[in-house]
Design a protein around this nucleic acid. Sequence first.
DNA 1: CGGTTTCTTCACCACTAGATCACGAGTTTG
DNA 2: CAAACTCGTGATCTAGTGGTGAAGAAACCG
Lengths: 123, 123
Amino acid sequence: MAATPTSDAPVETLHAGELEIRPDQGLALARGRALTLSVREFELLVAMARRQGAIVKREDLYRSVWGTELRARDRSVDVYVSKLRSKLEAALPDRQFIHTHPGFGYRFQPQPSQDVYMGAPAH
Amino acid sequence: MAATPTSDAPVETLHAGELEIRPDQGLALARGRALTLSVREFELLVAMARRQGAIVKREDLYRSVWGTELRARDRSVDVYVSKLRSKLEAALPDRQFIHTHPGFGYRFQPQPSQDVYMGAPAH
DNA sequence: CGGTTTCTTCACCACTAGATCACGAGTTTG
DNA sequence: CAAACTCGTGATCTAGTGGTGAAGAAACCG
């Protein structure tokens, strides 16, 4: 076997604030501590983190995570966003990651929770 | 490549919390006290300890320990994880080492039992 | 050999995750 | 203000996953 157990295999790593995500390993770390996410939750996190800063439509998220087209009245994305939020908040109470843009979709971006988000979203 | 660790070569030693593992010697120490592990249990421990902190898929663990491909419906890994856990817990009751990530695999990481950082509060 | 330990596999069951539904809060419109 | 939407999220149902005791088979060992 190779002398170095730590192979130089390219481990894709996404960063978002205090979050570290390794898509290939199914691992998400918050301040170094592993989160326990379900497959759907994890994939959703990855899909959003990959489009950090952009508003992503539910249709796109659904396609990325579920692999098929979002059907009308399917609230799956909302439900899993909710689950993800509560786990992220449990791990990093001071930060907000997932922002809702009513009528458009969700935006993933780490942000201190201190500032209140008011005013009309720019559209 | 490392020479045969007979003479001058340092004995490979893995550390994980209060655990010390010497793969070449088939020895695992918990707070200095040797654990009595079977071959499979020991190899599994080594395989996991070498990837400390990462989530390792059952397929990978099986390949490392059994040397062949994991067949569908083979629960060997689960069974030995269970055995390992109970021996580790018997030796170090206050620590948890093997964490299950449903849908992904297992993660080996020493962790004080005190902190309770789960996801959402159980409904 | 006979007793003991280990490995493999099976079976049962608790628990988890996924899909949906349902209710309600908050917004927008007219 | 009321109707129509958009979202958040608890609850429910079901299928699937994982934990683990136990039975046999195989390997060990004095």
